[in-house]
């Protein structure tokens, strides 16, 4: 069992809430007895994509991404760890990932507020885009972690083999 397991949120409560802006954490109960190596094998095609490097060590998979492709299912994340954890009776897969893309989108409303303040002739469009990016941030912060969770669930259940979203040619 991994000593740096991120299961549950108790380990992190003392950290400032601020990191939830760009940090995505979550977990999925595992209803299979398959060993961690088997779980990660089912997820491997998610990480065998351009610009991604990863390593599996015991119960943990650690990845890093540089300039992921547009259709990369994890394109918003830059780095992170997935852990197979034991929680009481059952087991679960937990993850903790960093997303500069979320951070970027979070900053955009402030940037365009600044533009509105500096440039009088661009006030209206700047306010409009402030609103658009604030809305997009909320959408992305809620939607993207859900999409990732659903993707993991499908792959662990064996519903996805290989990469469905890849272009027809390569």
């Amino acid at each position: 069992m991994s000593s740096v397991c991120h299961c549950g949120s108790t380990l992190r409560v003392n950290l400032p809430l601020i990191d939830t802006i760009w940090r995505v954490r979550g977990s999925l109960p595992l209803d299979t007895a398959a060993p961690a190596s088997e779980i990660f094998a089912r997820l491997e095609s998610l990480f065998e994509v351009a610009g991604t490097s990863y390593e599996i060590e015991n119960d943990a998979l650690t990845f890093r991404k540089k300039d992921p492709l547009s259709q990369d299912k994890m394109s918003i994340y830059k780095s992170g760890t997935l852990n197979v954890c034991h929680q009481g009776e059952g087991r679960s897969l937990a993850w903790d990932m960093q997303s500069p893309a979320l951070m970027f989108c979070f900053c955009l409303p402030f940037f365009f507020l600044g533009v509105a303040w500096l440039l009088d002739e661009s006030r209206t469009p700047s306010f409009v885009f402030t609103g658009i990016f604030a809305f997009l941030y909320v959408v992305g912060r809620i939607l993207e972690p859900r999409l990732f969770r659903a993707e993991l669930r499908r792959r662990i259940a064996g519903e996805v083999n290989g990469d469905m979203g890849a272009p027809a040619h390569s």
Partner: peptide, 28 residues
Amino acid sequence: RYKSWRLTWKELVVDLFYVAIAYTLIRA
């Protein structure tokens, strides 16, 4: 036209960032 060109959240944010720059900074 192509499923492999599907719009993702990140693509939309990045694209709209450029559109926003065009409508604000460059316009000014």
